[in-house]
Simulated assay, not measured.
Amino acid sequence: MYLKSLHLRDFRNYIDQQVAFDAQKTIVVGNNAQGKSNLLEAVELLATLKSHRTSRDRDLVREEMPQGHIQATVERIYGETELALTLRKQGRRTVSLNRENLRRHLDFLGILNAVQFSSLDLDLVRGAPECRRTWLDRLLVQLEPVYAHILQQYNQVLRQRNALLKKIRNLEAQHPKEQLLVELALWDAQLAANGSRVTRRRARVIERLAPIARSWHGKISGKTEILDIQYQPNVQWLEDDPTQVQQAFLEKIQQRRIPEEQLGTTVVGPHRDEVALNINQTPARSYGSQGQQRTLVLALKLAELQLIEEVIGEPPLLLLDDVLAELDPHRQNQLLEAIQDRFQTLITTTHVGSFDALWSKDSQILWVKTGQIDREPSIS
């Protein structure tokens, strides 16, 4: 797939900016806080409808403006598609495909695929389990867009069930709670049904991703370290069968009934899952240097690229947000060699001189200053 053009209007610090991409590699150059990351964030939003920098649409709209727009033209093997996303400070966002508004956001996903790699991705190793769950969920959305709906359904059930558990916890002792427990049993069944759909998909994608990441990690580390990735579901199950997994959920819910009523929150389900990342059988978060952790994240990102390409049949875009400075020369070379001309790549940097001369020669170079993009550096 190929991103041909991007049009930003009142998005972050961009007033009205159009960009045409005319090379497989685009280097976006500029000082910090000029808009380089915002450009990549816009592409990420078109691919996943999520930003790794904020969860609030009002943060994405330019100051004093009611709404912002992102529009793009994407070329796939089956033809050209126009994508558009409108973000509002108040009210729901809207999406359109070939200038037709879509009722379901689900139908927007899967047109553009992209893998983002930024310095924030070190949280994959060092951060809380939620960071790894979010990473896994965003990968799944690109491989199987319907997963966005499945996860949304699960989260809705989780919110409703938590509200009921809080109500039960706050109920005074003399008040009967039989009716509430009957209602809770209904939510238990829905949690088991929706939770099993989430956990089974997560397990399957880790099973496919792990050997690819292990191979990349071996290449980058010179085969001196062995990466092991394990999915650790909150609800343990042995066979990928919907009925059996749901039954495992219900059994654990029964086991944890008293703690849940005392805490007023759900402690059973995929919102408590973990993805264990181990190097030489030692947890990566407590192992070795930042360099080793960066090697792991780089291996994960290269594995994402490869898996998406295998599943959808086309190479996704690669978005590199100021990461070359974070990598030593060996890891830089491994990354650039893996990319070559296989993936359309948008890469931000503060210094274009940090790139190999041959790489720069084949690249389109864009200069960003205060939300303005030019093909020549501005003179100040």
Rank of each mutant, 00 (worst) to 15 (best):
G35D: 07
K36W: 04
N38C: 04
N38Q: 08
L39G: 07
L39C: 03
L40W: 11
A42Y: 00
A42M: 07
V43A: 06
V43Q: 02
V43G: 00
E44R: 03
E44I: 06
L45Y: 01
L46Y: 00
L46C: 08
L46I: 05
A47Y: 05
T48N: 11
T48E: 05
T48L: 12
T48C: 03
T48S: 12
L49A: 13
S51E: 02
S51T: 01
H52M: 01
R53A: 02
R53G: 05
R53I: 09
R53Q: 10
T54W: 04
T54V: 05
S55V: 03
S55F: 06
R56N: 09
R56G: 07
D57A: 10
R58D: 11
R58S: 09
R58K: 13
R58Q: 11
D59T: 00
D59R: 06
R62D: 04
R62P: 08
E63N: 14
E63P: 03
E64H: 15
E64Q: 15
E64R: 15
E64Y: 14
M65P: 13
M65Q: 15
M65S: 14
P66K: 04
P66Q: 09
P66A: 04
P66H: 00
P66F: 02
Q67L: 13
Q67E: 15
Q67R: 14
G68Y: 02
G68W: 00
G68Q: 05
H69I: 14
H69G: 13
I70T: 09
A72T: 10
A72Y: 00
A72F: 05
A72R: 03
T73C: 12
T73L: 13
V74R: 03
E75N: 12
R76I: 02
R76L: 10
I77G: 12
Y78T: 15
G79H: 10
G79Y: 05
E80Y: 06
T81P: 08
